[in-house]
Amino acid sequence: MTFFITGLIGVILAYLWLFSSHKTAPNNFNVLWAFAPNIIVAFFILKKAPKIWLQQYVLILIGFILLVPVLWILGIQAFPVAVVPLLFLLLGRYAYLYKYLLPPKK
């Protein structure tokens, strides 16, 4: 469900960025935590036989989540304070998935 919701938010942000004339949408780095391809990956997660690429994909998402505070500290974009708990929750969920997504090798 997490992948679907963040993917849906990412699709909305991508639409606003690419196809509308909103002045706040361009150069919006919220697409790092609301990653549009997550909406497609959500359906791959539902399958009971995850692939190795899903674990690597989750590792990339962890990198994106860790990049958000760096952009915030450097002053490239100011994020609302309400994003902080969301980032922690997403980071925890992605770390859990990274660790337990694939069964251990025998």
Rank of each mutant, 00 (worst) to 15 (best):
L97I: 06
F88Y: 13
F79V: 04
Y94L: 04
V84Y: 14
L59S: 10
Y96F: 13
P50R: 13
K23F: 09
Y94W: 09
A49Q: 15
V68L: 01
A25F: 04
I12Q: 07
V70D: 14
I40W: 12
F35M: 08
Y98G: 07
L8Y: 07
A49C: 15
V70H: 13
I39C: 11
L13S: 00
V11M: 13
L13D: 01
A14D: 12
A49L: 15
L91F: 05
L102D: 03
L97A: 07
I76E: 15
A25G: 05
M1V: 04
I40T: 11
S20K: 15
F4H: 08
L13V: 00
P26F: 10
P50Q: 15
A36F: 13
F3R: 06
I39E: 11
L74W: 09
F64G: 07
N30H: 10
L13H: 00
S20I: 08
T2V: 10
L66K: 05
S20V: 11
P37L: 04
Y57I: 03
L87P: 03
V68K: 00
G92T: 09
I39Y: 07
A42W: 13
S21V: 06
W33S: 03
V84K: 12
L67E: 14
A25C: 07
R93V: 11
Q77L: 02
L32Q: 00
K51Y: 12
A82T: 15
K23A: 12
Y100W: 03
Q55V: 06
V11G: 10
M1H: 06
N30P: 07
W17C: 07
A14W: 05
S21H: 12
I60F: 11
A36E: 09
L90F: 13
Y15E: 02
S20G: 10
I9N: 13
I45F: 10
P50F: 12
L87R: 01
L101P: 01
I76V: 14
N38R: 04
Y96S: 07
Y94C: 02
I12D: 07
A36G: 09
A49R: 15
P80D: 08
L66W: 07
G92C: 10
W72L: 12
L87I: 03
I52L: 15
V68Q: 00
V81I: 04
L74M: 11
N28H: 01
G10L: 00
S21P: 06
N27C: 13
A78T: 09
L16G: 02
F19L: 12
A95Y: 08
A36I: 10
N28S: 04
L86E: 10
S20R: 14
F19P: 02
I73G: 01
W72T: 11
F4S: 07
V81N: 05
L66Q: 10
V81Q: 06
I39K: 04
L18P: 00
L89K: 05
W53H: 02
A25N: 03
R93K: 15
K99A: 13
L32M: 02
A42T: 08
N27L: 14
I45M: 08
L89H: 04
L13Y: 01
F44R: 02
L97T: 03
G75A: 10
W17Y: 12
L59T: 04
V84R: 10
